[in-house]
Computed example of a mutant assay.
Amino acid sequence: MLSHVFVGITDFERALAFYRPVLASLGIRERFCEAERPWAGWESTPGPRPLFVIARPFNGEVPHPGNGLMVAFMAATRSQVDAAHALALSLGGQCEGRPGLRPEYHANYYGAYFRDPDGNKLCVASHGQA
Rank of each mutant, 00 (worst) to 15 (best):
L2C: 11
L2T: 13
H4L: 09
V5Y: 00
V7D: 02
D11P: 02
F12D: 02
A15F: 08
A17T: 09
Y19E: 01
Y19L: 05
P21L: 06
P21N: 07
V22R: 01
L23C: 04
A24E: 14
A24P: 02
S25I: 01
S25K: 09
G27W: 00
F32T: 06
C33M: 02
E34W: 09
A35L: 02
P38T: 03
A40G: 07
W42G: 01
T45Q: 13
P48E: 11
R49Q: 11
L51Y: 03
F52H: 07
I54W: 06
A55E: 08
R56A: 10
P57M: 06
F58E: 13
P63F: 01
H64D: 07
P65V: 02
N67F: 10
V71T: 15
V71G: 04
T77M: 08
R78D: 12
S79E: 15
D82G: 04
D82L: 10
A84V: 06
H85A: 11
A86D: 15
S90C: 11
L91E: 09
C95G: 15
P99S: 01
G100Q: 01
G100T: 09
E104A: 15
H106D: 10
A107K: 14
N108W: 09
N108A: 14
Y110L: 06
A112E: 08
Y113I: 05
F114I: 04
D116Y: 12
K121P: 00
L122V: 02
V124D: 00
S126T: 03
S126K: 04
H127A: 07
Q129K: 13
